[in-house]
Structure formats: structure tokens, C-alpha cells
Simulated scan of single mutants.
Amino acid sequence: MHRATERPADLDHLLAHGPFPAALRAAIAARGLSLDRIRHRLARRGLSVSVPTLSLWQSGRRRPERAESLRVLAGLEQVLELPAGSLGILLGPPRPRGRAPVRGRAGQLVTVSQHDQAEIDALGGLSAVRARVVLRATGAGLDRWPVRWHFEPGVAPKIFADRNCRVGIVEHDLDHDRLTAELVLDSPPAPGESVVVEYRATFPAHPVARGYVRIFDRPVRDYLLEARFAELPAQCVRVHAEDAGRELVPDSGGTVHVAEADVVGRIGIRWEP
């Protein structure tokens, strides 16, 4: 005979009052299932979610918001033997997505030039990118600049500040495989003045990549991308609206590069390992 599972009193309290992350953690603990086991049971229901995403949900660093994620949440309630909608009701209204442009009372930080140095390992995987950026202030009190990355699923980069800044808030959007890191400037430049910022992104795992692309939504006066290969690939080509597909020849140090003035949109390098 089937016997209903009795939930702990603290779980009932959290399901009634929240917050969502604590209720989710308590429900998972009550069922005694690992996150990988939960992922597997959801997959059997035709619902796809990664273990890192489940971990971020229960830590409170991310929460389900997209339609697909909410379908996963409904399946999660079934797997955890919870009443339908008991977790979803704790989410409240959706939070705003993305970040506003870096503006002060009257102005913004504008990218004047940027130099990226990408390191590619012997398997063709992107292991690190070092960036040197010159920013100019068009207003006073501007001390924050967002760095955005799109990454391979499950391989989010780690961001480190190297010069004239520190890493502030870091947001992971695993639903979109996207990361936004806020760089906080050591000293805001005066209006009309510039500051040089250096940071790097490292990757804990190196999936075999096919290219590196930087996207500029506003024109940048000078952009230089260097890609240094531990093992030279079969072919490297330029990625850009102009001269797209043009083959790039490595120098004696195993490095290829693209340089562009007044660049906007996508620009980068694609390679075949």
C-alpha cells in the first residue's frame, strides 16, 4: 500500500513562507537525492537542466525565470514530491534582466580601444583571455564597467582584475550561458579623462573551441585581437563583416591577429584544430 511521505515541519514552514532557495534546499534534503540524480529523473520526464543550474537555484545566486526553466521547476516539484506550484509561488515577480549602460548623472564610460590576448591550448580549447581596455569618462563619478561573456554550457569563465580595478558583482545566467562581471574602478576618471583597465578570464575546463569573437555594440576606435596557439591549427580565418573568411597566417611565435579601426559588431578569429 502506498504511504504518503511526511514532510519535515521546517520544510512545510519554508514552503508556506519562503524564501525560494531555502525551501528548495530543504525539499532536496528531505528527499535525499543528489543533484545529479534529480537531473536524471527530470531528463526521464523530457526536462533538461544542468547540475550547476540546480546548484545556483538552491544557493539563491540564480532563479528560474524563463518559460523552459519554469517547466523544469514544475517537474522538480513532482520529483521532490511537493504540491504543484508550491515552489513556483515563492519566486514572486520576475527580476529585471541584464544591466543598464554604465552611466552617471550625466555621462558614461566609453571604450576607446581594446586589446585581447587569447591563449589556445594544444587541443584547440580556449584557456584564457587577457584584456587591456582604455575607457574614457563623459561624466563624473563613473566607477563601474560591466564585462559580459557568452560561454560553452558548463564552462563559465572566472574573471580576475589585474590593473586599476577590482571585481564586483558577478552574475551567472546559465539559462543563456552568459556571465556578467562588474569591474569597479580604483579611481573614477574625471570627465574627459581616460583610464586603462586590465583583466583576465580563465576557463577551468577547455572544450575544443572553434573561435573567439568579441561583440561591440558601439564603435571602438582601435581593436586588436591576438590568438596564440600551443599547437598550430589547420586553418585560421578572420571573422568580421568585412573580409570575413580571409585566412590568417601565424607568425613565428604561433600567433595570429586581427586589427581594426572604428570597429562595431562582431569581430574575431575562427580556427580548425
Rank of each mutant, 00 (worst) to 15 (best):
A22H: 03
I215F: 13
P96G: 00
V237A: 07
R61E: 15
V239S: 12
V112A: 01
A128R: 10
F151V: 11
H240E: 11
L185H: 05
L183A: 05
G265K: 12
W149R: 11
I28K: 03
V79G: 02
A22T: 10
L14S: 00
D12V: 11
G141R: 13
L224S: 04
L183R: 00
I269E: 00
A26W: 05
H115M: 11
P64I: 06
L42R: 02
G18C: 07
V263Y: 04
R163P: 09
R103W: 01
L42P: 02
R45V: 14
A156N: 01
A261Y: 12
R3T: 15
E119Y: 10
V79T: 10
A190S: 12
T255C: 07
A259I: 11
L56W: 12
R62K: 10
H206F: 00
A201F: 02
G139I: 04
P219W: 12
V256W: 04
V220C: 04
V51A: 03
L87D: 12
R66K: 07
D177E: 06
R218T: 12
G125C: 07
C236E: 05
A106M: 12
A241M: 13
L126G: 07
V110W: 03
R238K: 08
C236F: 05
V112M: 01
P233G: 03
A4K: 11
E247F: 00
L47D: 07
A259H: 15
H17R: 13
V112L: 02
V133C: 05
P101N: 09
A190T: 03
Q114T: 13
L33V: 04
R136E: 05
R44F: 09
L47P: 08
P94F: 07
V129C: 06
E152D: 12
V197S: 00
A181F: 09
S194R: 14
T180P: 07
K158Q: 15
R61D: 13
E6I: 10
R66N: 02
R238F: 06
R136W: 02
I38R: 01
V129G: 06
R97V: 13
F229W: 11
F203G: 01
R103I: 07
R45N: 14
A244W: 14
W149E: 14
Y199K: 00
T138I: 02
Q117G: 09
P94W: 09
Q108T: 13
R63E: 15
D36K: 08
A27N: 08
A156L: 02
V264Y: 06
